[in-house]
Design a protein around this nucleic acid. Structure first.
Lengths: 141, 141
DNA sequence: CCTCATTACGGGAACCGTAACGATC
DNA sequence: GATCGTTACGGTTCCCGTAATGAGG
């Protein structure tokens, strides 16, 4: 109930470093100084009790634990962005309606099945990233 | 690439309030003061440009945007906890190996298919929560 | 009146940048 | 010696608690 042991700011820095491949480039991307990233990254590793990067020459490579953490961080920040979009959609009066679909059901078949509940001026998007398709429309009803 | 517009600490407080049903109980649960939660919650709403709770009597109820945000927050903090567990597993020498499986493939069939790569002393868990099954074992090799 | 939630404000912790250092190419 | 990463230290921001206020039952 209290997962505050994980500092999501540190996790963001770790994520940026992993994506950019080096602390220097991550610092540029985040408009931060190199030292800040390095320090906070050390904090995260100490907090998790596990090294996430291993020095390779004068560069860094992900450890096995680091690769595992990166997978989760990817999903977490993706969800964070989706959260903002979802809330913004509510502000603009649009609602999101997500429908799960088994891979065994062709898209067109699913579309035909959903036809009865679709309204005019609805935007329909097939989003394969999470095996879910999402449809938006201007108003709920 | 820089989703730092979303403060995950604020999101945690929002999540706790939504789960507990009131700021007071959330403050007790998090060992924080009521004022802190209230302020930070206001920050989050201002940041998102949308109210997440609506005053109902002297209590609070989720708005529609709030319910949407809660769905995402649930997943985010669940992933955060899983991240910690995954990294902890690496520390104890255990590795997690996740296998995706179509619903059309029975579990026992999948198990038989995986038999050749399984080792002794492996723990096999069917985890339906994310449509994925995960298997752990003491060492990689 | 008692409880819940919201502002106002001061102390303190965490974050972040400047600087100096070690290591690798 | 040029670049990347790490450690040391001081300033600033943000967070959090005490106190005072308003609102609902």
């Amino acid at each position: 109930m209290t997962p505050d042991d994980l500092n999501f700011r540190h996790l963001l820095y770790f994520w940026a470093v992993a994506k950019e491949g080096s602390i220097t480039r991550a610092a540029e991307r985040l408009n931060l100084s190199v030292q800040t990233i390095s320090t906070q990254l050390g904090m995260l590793e100490q907090q998790l009790g596990q090294a996430l990067f291993a020095p390779q020459g004068r560069s860094l490579v992900l450890t096995e634990a680091g690769r595992a953490a990166l997978d989760y961080a990817d999903q977490i920040f993706l969800l964070g962005e989706r959260l903002r979009h979802a809330v913004a959609d509510h502000a603009s009066g649009r609602r999101r309606f997500a429908v799960g679909r088994s891979e065994a059901v062709p898209k067109l078949v699913a579309f035909r099945l959903l036809q009865p509940v679709l309204r005019r001026r609805c935007r329909c998007a097939w989003n394969a990233s999470k095996a879910m398709s999402s449809t938006r429309w201007p108003n709920w009803r």
